[in-house]
Nucleic acid binder design. Structure first.
Length: 200
DNA sequence: AACAAAGACAACCGCGAGTTC
DNA sequence: GGAACTCGCGGTTGTCTTTGT
């Protein structure tokens, strides 16, 4: 049997792309009633025209009641950077050290925020040290970052930590940053409140 | 006000590991 | 023992939003 078949079905019935609120509700209702199970069967049993894989991802990254959404705090940023230095791109491993955060969220955070800063810092560094450190400044660490930072000698990481660490005294309250500042997200807490009220 | 570029996030894909039969 | 199947991970792409011109 072709492994790909279970992942990328040719079935035109299989939906792709952004999840609708209705699909989210179906998935939440099904899991709250039956629990998590074999995802492919779950998708079918729940009546969702999605792959099991898609359902799993949606549940883990977005719908789970313990998922924390919203800004990553300075404290978390520091922790991510420390753990990335230790383990490299082991996002799921890093995510386990950050309760409520998903590997996908951390991965995206790293790519969009931290790599940008590294790139900038690296450019500044290479500009100032271009004559001295040609071989260091021209490494490909920004493009992949696939290895633990401990293997890198670039001083840009040192500079990276400072802006975050200086923010530490002003770490915002996590509960407020996750709810009040994200009006464009509909709250999963609402769903779970509804579930509780419905006695499900 | 309209458009383009950049940023941020959600979702998909391919692959390897683990499990079941 | 090995084929079939599922799960989980990391990389990549697509889409929506925000910002700048």
């Amino acid at each position: 049997m072709d492994k790909k078949q279970c992942n990328t079905s040719q079935d035109p019935e299989v939906r792709k792309g952004p999840w609708t609120m209705e699909e989210d509700l179906i998935l939440i209702n099904y899991i709250s009633n039956h629990g998590e199970g074999v995802w492919n069967s779950l998708a079918k049993a729940a009546g969702l025209k999605r792959t099991g894989k898609s359902c799993r991802l949606r549940w883990l990254n977005y719908l789970r009641p313990d998922v924390r959404r919203g800004n990553i705090t300075a404290e978390e940023q520091l922790l991510i950077m420390e753990l990335h230095a230790k383990w490299g791109n082991r996002w799921s491993k890093i995510a386990k050290q950050l309760p409520g955060r998903t590997d996908n969220e951390i991965k995206n955070f790293w790519r969009t925020r931290i790599q940008k800063h590294i790139k900038q810092a690296d450019q500044q560094q290479s500009n100032s040290n271009s004559e001295i450190n040609d071989h260091q400044a021209s490494t490909s660490q920004v493009s992949t970052m696939a290895e633990p930072m401990e293997t890198y000698s670039s001083p840009c990481y040192q500079g990276m930590l400072e802006p975050f660490s200086t923010q530490l005294p002003n770490i915002p309250d996590q509960s407020s940053c996750c709810t009040n500042d994200n009006n464009n997200y509909w709250s999963m807490e609402d769903f779970w409140s509804m579930q509780l009220l419905n006695g499900d």
